[in-house]
Computed example of a mutant assay.
Amino acid sequence: MKQINLIALLFCCILSTTTFAQKNKKFDIIAYYTGDSQLIDQYEVSKLNQIIFSFCHLKDGKLSVDSAKDSLTIKHLVSLKAKNPQLKIIVSLGGWGGCEPCSDAFSTAEGRLKFAKSVKEVSDYFKVDGLDLDWEYPSIEGLPGHLYQAADKPNFTELVKILRSTLGKKYELSFAAGGFQKCLDESIDWKAVAPFVNRINIMSYDLVNGYSKVTGHHTPLYSTNPKEESTDRAVEFLLKQGVPAEKLVIGGAFYTRQWKNVENINNGLYQAGEHFQGVDFKNYATTYTEANGWKYFWDDKAKAPYWYNAQTKTFATSDDLKSIKAKTEYVKEKKLGGIMFWELTLDSFRNGMVDEIYKVKTAK
C-alpha cells in the first residue's frame, strides 16, 4: 500500500511540474539595440525580456567592447534590471561585417578557449547575463571578402560547447542564424548545437536583400511559392532538424528595403529594380503617404505588407503593425521561444512595433 501511495505521490508531482511548465511557457520579446546610454530611457523597457547590445567585436581573438561610450551604454543597460527584474542584458559579437576575423580566430581549440575566457571576463565585469553570437556566416559567404571555410561548421559547434562549459549552465547563450535556405542547409550543425544554446534568433528578414535585383517580401511570415524564403519555412525546417520549438525565436524587421526603377506591374512586387536605402518604422507614417504618391498593399498569403509608388517607380517591403501582430500570433500558436527584431532605435517611442508585440503576447 505504501508503495502504491508513493507511486501516486510521484505521479502527482510529475503532473503538477508538467502543468506548471506548460503554464509558464516563456515568450521572450528580444530587442537588438544600437543606441547609447540615454536613448534607451525613451523606450518602454518594461515590455522587453532581453536587450542585446549590438555590437562587440574581436580584438586579438578576445571579445572587446569598442569604446568608452559602449562601456557606458552596457553599464546603463545592466542598471535597468533594478526596475525590471525579468530583463536580461546580452552582449552580441559581430553583426553584418563585424565578424571578419571569426573564421580564423575560432579555427583552433586554443583560439576558441581564449575567446570563451574573454567572454567570461567581460560578462563578470559588466554583470551581463549572456552572449549572442552574430557571425554572418560560418561556412558560407557573408560580406564579400570575409574569410569563410568548410571547417567553420564543426568549429562553430566546438565554439558553442566551450562557451557553455566555460560560462556555466545559467549563462544565456544564443546566436543569430540566417533565415535563408543556404544558411539553414550548410552553415550550422543544428542537432549538435541546439543542446548547448538557450535560443536561436532566426534572422527571418533580409530574405530579399541589398544584393537582390528583383523585388519581393524581405520578411514574410509565409512563402507564396515553393521557392520563396519565409519565416515559416525556416521554422519548419529547424523543427524537422529536431530543434525544440521553445528555442526558436523569429525575427521582425523595423525597417524597409526599397527598390527604384520598378515598373508598374503587379504593383511592383516580384519585378526588376535597383535596391536603395530604406526607411525606419518610426518614419513610415510620414513617408509612405498617398500625398507622397505611395499606395499600401497587403499580401494575405505571405501575411506581409508592401508599398508602391507609381509616380517614382519605387517599391518598399517590410513588417508593419499588421504583420508583426501576425508574427507574434504565430509564435504563440507554434509555442516558440519568442520574437526578436532589428532594432529598437528604429521603433516609435510609444504605440509602435514593440507595443503591438506586447499586446498580442499578453492577450488571453
Rank of each mutant, 00 (worst) to 15 (best):
D28K: 11
A272V: 11
K247P: 05
H275M: 06
T286L: 07
S46R: 11
S16R: 00
V331N: 07
L93R: 09
R233W: 00
S187N: 08
I14S: 05
I4W: 00
A176M: 07
K169A: 14
T256F: 00
T312M: 09
E141A: 14
Y308H: 01
K47S: 11
S223W: 03
L238F: 05
V197A: 07
E44L: 08
G273Q: 12
N84L: 09
E343K: 08
S230W: 02
G338N: 02
I52W: 05
I52V: 15
I140P: 01
F20R: 00
G142Q: 03
L173G: 02
Y148Q: 05
P305A: 10
C102G: 05
E228V: 10
G35F: 01
Q181C: 04
Y43T: 05
F254M: 12
E274S: 13
N261R: 12
Y222H: 11
Q258G: 03
E274V: 15
S323A: 06
Q50A: 10
I14N: 01
Y308W: 00
T312L: 12
K127C: 04
V119N: 06
A310G: 05
Y33V: 11
S16Y: 00
K114G: 10
I324F: 04
K170W: 00
G61F: 03
Q38H: 12
K81D: 12
F196Q: 07
S16K: 00
A326D: 07
A177L: 09
A21I: 13
K25A: 13
E263K: 15
K114V: 13
C183H: 04
F281C: 09
S223C: 08
W307Q: 06
K327S: 14
Y306M: 03
A151P: 02
T231Y: 02
G35P: 02
G145L: 11
I51Y: 03
N5K: 13
P244W: 03
A194N: 06
L77S: 06
Y211Q: 14
W135H: 04
G178M: 10
E228K: 10
D300L: 03
K260G: 13
Y330W: 01
L269N: 14
H275K: 06
V122M: 10
Q277W: 01
G95A: 11
G95D: 10
V122L: 12
G98N: 12
K120C: 04
E186Y: 05
L159Q: 10
L6V: 12
D347M: 08
E141W: 01
P101N: 14
Y222F: 13
T34M: 12
Y270E: 14
T289D: 05
K260C: 12
K23M: 07
E121G: 01
Q86R: 12
Y270G: 09
K127S: 14
K282F: 00
V78M: 07
G210D: 11
K361T: 14
I51C: 05
P305Y: 01
T312H: 04
I40T: 04
D104Q: 15
